[in-house]
Design a binder for these strands. Structure first.
Lengths: 223, 223
DNA sequence: CAAAGATTCAATTAACCTCTTGAATAAAGT
DNA sequence: ACTTTATTCAAGAGGTTAATTGAATCTTTG
């Protein structure tokens, strides 16, 4: 069959992309890049990799077409080539979640309260935002907030929470979000707020999923 | 941060699933299993792997939670654990298609007529099926047809096409489908039918995507 | 043009994956 | 119980990938 050779070549390309995803460090890098573009140095610092090692992983991701880099002065800034990649990571997550028992085990061990915090869906949040019924809190670090966030969101990383409690409305529902489903920042914020008597919920997923879904975002300092 | 350890463990699990997808042979196996469950021997035959090798790849897929096997007499029958896996493969395909230039090259080389054949969407086909405006042709091998197919579809692999032309309506549109976007069977059928004056189109994607979308399917020999 | 900073390249070693081969199970038929 | 058939296990050669180190490249700044 003449279909065998080109099919084989295509599958080989798919497999190469899958192999690029087949390393925890590279998934970590991709997750960070799903938040915002970054330089090699920043990425190395955030992931705990040496610079040379981060650079090599990034190049591997680039060879597979998942990220692209541009030079900007002394630095090279990397970003995802495509928001479809967020969908791919989400799909990978769902399959791993459903199928791999070990993931459940870790989740149950660490995110014990996971189910108690009843996350709010994107659709639901959007509706409540339109009705002005909700205060949206971004629990990520400042620089990620600056690079893009949900419209009207307040930047409030866990460390600043205690001294900025009075900025928050006591009579209105609060929804917090962060990087994505395995980011703990919004869990921390919600737990803390609830402990202090606020009505707080988590957004399901995080900023990259929101953006990838084509929902509106806002930039505080348009670079 | 206490979030680093469990996060690392989770990413490692995701990476393990991605690594399981990182081999053309395993993707080939998964594509076959997306059609229907099969024994090790069948899978080895269809992919051209030795039996021992196919067995090892299948076990790797099983360890990652992507397939499961059950003993049935002398044979072990493998199948996908979950239709979400079809979505993951689709997502992988879309990313690879958009990003990897080499894939485009192969596609243009082999599926030259790809664009000329204007595929019909699932939604569109469903509408035309309801209105009774269309004859649906399944271009896959007989056994895959028997394991499940679109409602009312006629099994018509390319080899049987010439001697069964008179079964087809000359005055009605024909839509052919096969295994998925990189399966050539439906291309062959459509090209042949058009050459003989029929009005024929391809369905976008194939049977596994149809089934995974929750659309109705039919079994000819309920096993 | 020299110096410093950011990133990449090159070379090394260790770890891992792939395919093959032949032996070991497991179930069914004789 | 023995043979056959289908699958899995175990071991080894060959190749690929990962992390580390130090040198090389490219860009801005003095």
């Amino acid at each position: 069959m003449s279909s065998q050779n080109p099919k084989r070549a295509i599958l080989e390309q798919f497999a190469a992309v899958a192999r690029a995803l087949g390393s925890a460090h590279r998934l970590d890098l991709l997750e960070l890049l799903a938040q915002t573009e970054r330089s090699v140095e920043e990425l190395a610092g955030l992931t705990g990799l040496t610079i040379a090692n981060a650079s090599q992983h990034l190049q591997q991701l680039r060879r597979s077409g998942l990220v692209e880099g541009r030079r900007e002065g002394k630095r090279v800034i990397y970003r995802l080539t495509d928001s479809e990649i967020v969908a791919l990571l989400g799909s990978l997550r769902r399959v791993a979640e459903r199928n791999v028992a070990a993931v459940e085990k870790v989740l149950n061990g660490y995110f014990r309260q996971r189910d108690k915090l009843e996350p709010v869906s994107r659709k639901e949040l959007l509706r409540r935002m339109r009705d002005g019924l909700v205060t949206v809190v971004d629990a990520r670090p400042l620089d990620e907030f600056a690079a893009g966030h949900l419209p009207g969101a307040i930047s409030l990383p866990p460390r600043q929470l205690k001294r900025r409690l009075r900025e928050l409305p006591a009579d209105q529902e609060i929804v917090a979000y962060c990087r994505g489903p395995y980011c703990v920042l919004s869990y921390e914020v919600v737990a803390e707020l609830r402990a202090r008597g606020f009505t707080a919920f988590r957004l399901e997923d995080g900023y990259p999923e929101w953006k990838a879904a084509g929902l509106p975002v806002e930039n505080s300092s348009p670079a």
